[in-house]
Design a protein around this nucleic acid. Structure first.
Length: 255
DNA sequence: ATGGTTGCTTAGCAA
């Protein structure tokens, strides 16, 4: 089973790239983030024509997540089921072939110390609580998406420069470690322990040509799936060319 | 040096 996760930064702008990606990679599951549109305006027909079903949790202008799957998604969930945390469309879940899958767009966090920063840390803690209440580490479960956090020094090209940013500050890394402590594995990190591979480069200041990247997109799997992961890679080519997303897709193969 | 780019929506915000 091949799984991909990709922050497309607007599904409408990136539709042609997505369709070419689906044709080239033939993934079984694709988790998308930052759709920046409603479910009503999501390009469901074009994606179904490519052979995928869609579970969409959309929102106008901001956020928005989806799961694309070859097989029919069932038990589709949107958000945590907690009105205190569900104003923004950042989490969609579906069961496909007895695997529980979530596509997640973690909050960016704005600036350290801001309200958005507190929201980011609270949201990740809310996700940990959601897992504790609804799932078990022995289940076959995947959380894929833009975590907006780099976990390790080797996941940041210039760790000193980013040490005090919302993407790499210790409290954010600690929050992610809380998810790992519950029972999730950073699949790419396990299969590529040397690091130095990134998934996001800022559009500004020539970050991509300068190589100033971070690995902030993750395939997180419970051990029953992580233990059968055979390959994980990042499609860096997708960051090149005309109208790229600022994120590259992360792919993992199970079994 | 507080810069720079992209997308949505339409001048300002978010990333």
């Amino acid at each position: 089973m091949k799984v991909a996760t990709w922050n497309v930064n607007s599904i409408r702008t990136r539709l042609d790239r997505l369709l070419a990606f689906l044709d080239r990679e033939q993934p079984d599951i694709v988790c998308l983030q930052e759709l920046k549109t409603t479910a009503e305006n999501f390009p469901t027909e074009a994606i179904e024509a490519a052979g995928y079903r869609c579970a969409v949790h959309g929102q106008r202008t901001y956020n928005g997540v989806a799961i694309l799957s070859r097989e029919k998604p069932v038990e589709i969930s949107r958000g945590f089921g907690d009105t205190a945390w569900d104003d923004q469309a950042r989490l969609v879940g579906a069961t496909v072939d007895d695997i529980r899958i979530y596509s997640a767009y973690f909050p960016n966090g704005g600036e350290i110390g801001s309200e958005k920063w507190a929201f980011k840390l609270g949201w990740i803690e809310r996700l940990r609580q959601f897992l504790q209440e609804n799932h078990r580490p022995k289940e076959r479960l995947l959380i894929c998406g833009d975590t907006n956090v780099a976990l390790n020094e080797s996941d940041v090209a210039n760790p000193d420069k980013w040490a005090d940013s919302v993407l790499f500050a210790e409290p954010a890394r600690d929050a992610i470690r809380g998810l790992l402590d519950w029972g999730l594995v950073d699949v790419f990190g396990r299969l590529n322990p040397r690091g130095g591979v990134f998934s996001w480069w800022d559009y500004r200041q020539l970050a991509f040509p300068k190589g100033d990247g971070l690995r902030i997109d993750h395939v997180l799997a419970t051990e029953p799936l992580a233990s059968i992961a055979s390959e994980a890679r990042i499609d860096r080519e997708e960051r090149k060319g005309k109208q790229p997303s600022d994120h590259a897709p992360v792919l993992a193969v199970f079994g």
